[in-house]
Design a protein around this nucleic acid. Structure first.
Lengths: 206, 206
DNA sequence: TCTAACCCGAACACATCTGTTCGGGTTAGA
DNA sequence: TCTAACCCGAACAGATGTGTTCGGGTTAGA
């Protein structure tokens, strides 16, 4: 710990200014990690370095460990989700319609990151992974709760389960697309239709 | 290759009769593999041997490689699913009702094997994993097709996607249960309700 | 009882990955 | 131009896992 890892994330006034080529390397590495993890959850540091077109030593000079690299990549993905979620109107329309919008937005991001999820779960462990998703998932949870009150979302099933359903279908759509069984163009619409049906109040409950 | 691995699966007339203690070891190993993989997808051969209460050498004498062991364990799991699926009346009642029964049955099996799936995907790879599931999934696919004809299952979404939805929700229920966010007692009912809603014809399609 | 089948710990060869060090080359940027 | 920051291949130490061999002990089962 306590490396002079001055913060890969820009924005804050980084006191030790990095040279432009270093900045370029870091970007290439993060990008490569995304690509590498997409095709193989066990991608090694050597794989990633090769994909990024940098030396392994360079990689280690920026990210002291494999875990920290994953951490950074995950942080960017989650940040994207958070940003997208924040931009969606959650208060205005009926919950079910808002939900459809949220699902579409999440899909945009997920489509970018696809199987990163699997890799991250393995390295970071399910708990820490869950922690990362907690914030966006809580947003969805709140939306579901509102819907359960205004009657546009079913109230006969636990809220946590409904959130898990959304999460699960989102990732299912990602892997079906990846596998070529679902066309990327259809995915968003199909996904939205399925989520809405699953979360709508049951018409003739048994 | 070409080991004298006379076939761990009984049934066929195994020419080299195994001694009773060997049979016992094999059972213990398969059982242990199930337990070990449940808690850690990366369980080593040493872990499994320890859990089974046998020596590592003994393990290797029965299963020449980690992969073959996984293969065998998976085969048993799939066989269970197949058996359960075969016992369910698929022809009689309307497709949607039959589907509910199928989901419940699959859940019984999945509840036993839970996170074996994750481990198997990692070792066997997604394609071979998919191949294993193809048969049971085809059964569900046929059922969905029938439902799309008799009108009890929605026809506005691709059949493959509906099958994927079932598959995905099944595994979501497994991990939610594992995580303690869904009580084992509720799981079957909650799952069934969700699948039925997701696959029922949309009442007021957009 | 007797023997082949089985069990098993110890130790080995081999592979692979992580993270580090060394030493020299390249380049951004003042 | 000049130098600190950066890049990088080679090579190392250390950890961990796989699959095998050896040599001796135990037990099923005829």
């Amino acid at each position: 710990m306590a490396t002079d890892h001055t913060g890969v994330v820009p924005g804050a006034g980084s006191r030790t200014r990095r040279r432009a080529d270093a900045e370029r390397s870091i970007t290439a590495i993060v990008e490569a990690a995304l690509v590498a993890f997409r095709s193989d959850a066990d991608a090694t540091m050597a794989d990633i370095a090769r994909t990024a077109g940098v030396g392994r030593v360079t990689l280690y000079s920026h990210f002291p460990s494999r875990e920290e690299l994953l951490e950074e990549v995950m942080a960017r993905a989650i940040e994207d989700v958070r940003a997208v979620l924040a931009a969606v109107p959650v208060e205005g329309p009926p919950a079910r319609d808002a939900l459809a919008g949220v699902v579409r937005s999440c899909w945009q991001v997920l489509d970018r990151y696809r199987s990163l999820h699997a890799a991250a779960v393995r390295v970071l462990g399910p708990e820490r992974m869950r922690a990362r998703h907690d914030e966006p998932l809580a947003t969805i949870g709140a939306l579901v709760e509102r819907g359960q009150h205004d009657g546009t979302i079913r109230a006969d099933l636990p809220r946590d389960w409904l959130v898990a359903t959304v999460y699960s279908l989102l990732h299912a759509a990602a892997s079906e697309t990846e596998a070529g069984r679902l066309s990327p163009g259809d995915a968003a619409g199909v996904l939205e239709a399925t989520v809405v049906s699953a979360l709508s109040p049951a018409p003739a409950a048994g």
